[in-house]
Amino acid sequence: MTQLAQREIAETHPRDVLLRQDRLPHIWCPGCGLGIALNCFLGALMKSGLDLKKVAVVSGIGCAGRVAGYINLDSFHTTHGRAIPFATGLKLANPELKVVVFSGDGDLIAIGGNHFIHAARRNMDITVICVNNFNYGMTGGQLGPTTPTTAFTTTSPYGNREHPFNIPYLAAGSGAVYVARWTTLHVRRLERSMIEALQKKGFALVEVISPCPTLYGRRNKMPTGVEEMEYYRRKSVIRHGADPRDVEIRYEGEIVVGKFVDVEKPTFIDLLPNDNR
């Protein structure tokens, strides 16, 4: 820890050193789960043993995309959907960096879905934190790639007629070497998984199921953050090693959480045709 860090710790919250204080307060709504996800991430960073000078955080666009802007590390707020390819370039230009993509389900799985599966296929050495709140928050609560069938959003006013992506299954099927899912209720387990994902070599994914009471919950019988958390408490089932194909989240249905995949596989950088690794 740097001298600066020690001074800050003495006077403020131990994790403040990892936040850009001059950017607070954040933009997130009351009851939003992003603060919890960010707090777990900061804890994971501190406990990961990583050299924080060599950690870079990349976000796309959306509410979760703002995370990069609050973290006091090298951080990049890129274009919608392109956080993963940007992170890919960053990592390959300087393999010493630990590159983390922190973004939302719409950013990573809809507009950025193709990049997500290809980075997983290549086993690109990046950690991906995907905060899934079942809708597009920043633009006012539209249907997303993860919105459960029949759920109401501003662009599914008659109930969602589409089938959602099951993100762990998508990641595992595409080649991710680490896949875990927790809700923002499971803070200790979430932090632990984030540490594991940060320490993992290769494409590691942590999905964070997170409340969006203002836009999603309100239209789906959970108008406060507490009610969404209550839903997680009632319906979450910890099942480590569950087959990812069995963890789809249905409307008001069970949320299977846990670590689903943790395997070893050479990364893209391991397999480069030169000695510049």
Binding site: T79, R82, G89, A93, N114, H115, H118
Partner: peptide, 15 residues
């Protein structure tokens, strides 16, 4: 889209 994004990322990685 990914190509151009990666090129920007690499530039910020120092290449």
């Amino acid at each position: 889209m990914a190509s151009m994004a990666a090129v920007l990322g690499a530039s910020w990685g120092g290449a």
